[in-house]
Design a protein around this nucleic acid. Structure first.
Lengths: 199, 199, 199, 199
DNA sequence: GATGAATGAGTATTCATTCAT
DNA sequence: CATGAATGAATACTCATTCAT
């Protein structure tokens, strides 16, 4: 299919350096100048590829969201046995910790930015909407297969997302360095209570 | 000797304008100049009271955290009947929505800032530690009074906090404008599942 | 005669702190704010006593010059024997090293300032005029007493001053840390050549 | 590739304007803003070429010292006759008046700065070390050719430098506007006494 | 006699950006 | 494709100073 154009490579290179600078200096400290210095190129090169800084910000959130999305939820439809399939879902959800693939400073900075910037917010909404749908589908499937006993799959999906993001949030405001395995076990226990097996 | 000190009033006045500017322009856009313009005073006056912008940031997080703290959890120990006391706890927790008293942009910006700034992070840790202790105490009390049936009050307290923050987080990335009553009902339902009545 | 007024003490206190700040931060770095901080008083107090910073500068040069003057040349007229008296002069002159009583940074900064500020320059001119006269008087006396053989006492006095300031200047641009005794001996040797004994 | 570099020209242009501003406003008054205004360019352009003001100061001292050096002492080795050669040396030295090529305010301001700034001081030390060596070589040559009768050429060289700088210094603290010819004659007379002809 | 409030001009430097080469 | 020149607005902060108390 031929090599990627230089432009595409350069753009990605810029974005990944932008990302790194935010980690080190915060969103408010990430200037075109600093990114350029880190790349050892001229600042105007970044403008050459993105025109404005705002465009760079949008570029970054898109880049982030696409990598994030592709990492987080696999396709469960290939698993035949319904119990096994639901167990898989619980397992994956319990282990979701996006801070392993995405830097927290970057994530929450953009989240905060989303409050004032509709374009950014839209990316988040879309992402979580996708996640919610996937989860709701699995929950509904497990319910129809009489694996779990719940009322509203839609509401339950929201609950799971809240729990995922809540535990992520909480993790960074605790003094204790909680072990990941332990955290995952706790999560599963909660899941078991919220999604009781069918009897 | 000397002029009457307006320091206390002025400092608070500055902080509340700082807060407002963050809401409108984001943390990265909240400059001393803009705050001063909004206050209709000279920028150097802000420096006169805070010396550096960093000190202003610390001043603001302290101010925010103290108002936040005083708003969020009341004292339940005066309620005699244990069942009523636990119901009160559930009720309050279900309704905690700090975004009613604190702006989301400010909150998440500082949260993100806390990732790189230990002084800021400490404030968050202290706050949530306090909240966790209060909740754990209530849970333990309800357990000892045979109101609810759970294993570990400490872990349960963490779970509640995660749930609170998770639902707050999720609320801002949904397209639907969820009704607060409905949200509170959902929260209560989850609480009932996680804290089943003693039988 | 009563005690000094508080004002007089305060003024001197301010000037000596001004002097110290110049030593540490240079003339360009010596601000009212820094002086006040070092004194642990309010900046406006300095203005209260001196009205403007320019006045403080003039105050300092006056203070400096008066202490400098009183240190440098004693009265030789009490020495009876003419040879002994001239030897004394040579001895004193050889040992003049104002950098022992006055900081170099301060001295040369004010000297440079004198180039553009006539009021400052006047202080220097007056000081060196006084020194020149004293020296000329001693040279003329030694000549009249047939101790030394020179032509023009006025010119010779200038020569001595140039030599004093020249050696001081040179001392600070050499890498070698020249011993003061050695320097004084060299100076005396030069003096002997320039002021040969009468034969 | 890229735009033609104007760096060398621009840098020198900036330095010479810096120099001029120091003359008019003193070292303490020479701000980037004033230099830029005088050049009729934007202040940030100066930063573009020098990054910091400190770098500009170092740039200026280097520029000054190199022009100063190239002006002050010629090469005497081409003069065959030893007597003539020594006379030339005396002649040149008697006429050294750097204030003809370098502004006094600038010179003494940097000299004073050198007291606290080792990088600046080094430039002075290097310069005078070079001058001392040149003079010592000439003195030694004249001595070996039995032109003059002195003991230590090294010490004598220092003496000459002190005399040069001393007379320069003195010149600016006299009220009389001494005629340059006269001053040079006086200097020569002193030289004759300090470097008596061989008999 | 001394402090603290307040100002307004000025400091060096950073910023995003435009344009010529 | 990339650099360097140049700008103008903005940044946090310092400065000397005035005035009220």
């Amino acid at each position: 299919m031929g090599r990627k154009s230089k432009a595409k490579i350069r753009r990605q290179e810029i974005l990944s350096h932008f990302y790194e600078v935010i980690i080190e200096e915060g969103f408010e400290g990430a200037s075109i100048g600093k990114i350029a210095k880190r790349m050892e190129v001229n600042p105007s090169l970044l403008i050459h590829y993105f025109s404005t800084k705002d465009a760079m910000v949008i570029g970054l959130i898109d880049y982030i969201m696409s990598t994030y999305s592709s990492h987080i939820i696999p396709d469960f439809s290939s698993v035949e046995d319904p119990q096994e399939r639901w167990d898989d879902v619980v397992d994956v959800v319990s282990k979701i910790q996006w801070d392993l693939i995405m830097n927290k400073t970057v994530f929450y900075s953009f989240y905060a930015l989303g409050m004032r910037n509709p374009e950014i917010r839209m990316r988040f909404v879309d992402f979580y909407e996708g996640l919610r749908k996937t989860l709701a589908k699995e929950i509904a499937h497990a319910k129809s297969q009489k694996i779990i006993e719940i009322e509203d799959p839609e509401e339950s999906a929201k609950m799971i997302i809240s729990l995922i993001e809540g535990t992520n949030f909480y993790q960074h405001v605790t003094s204790e360095k909680s072990n990941r395995v332990e955290r995952s076990d706790m999560f599963k226990a909660v899941m078991r209570q919220l999604f009781p097996p069918f009897k």
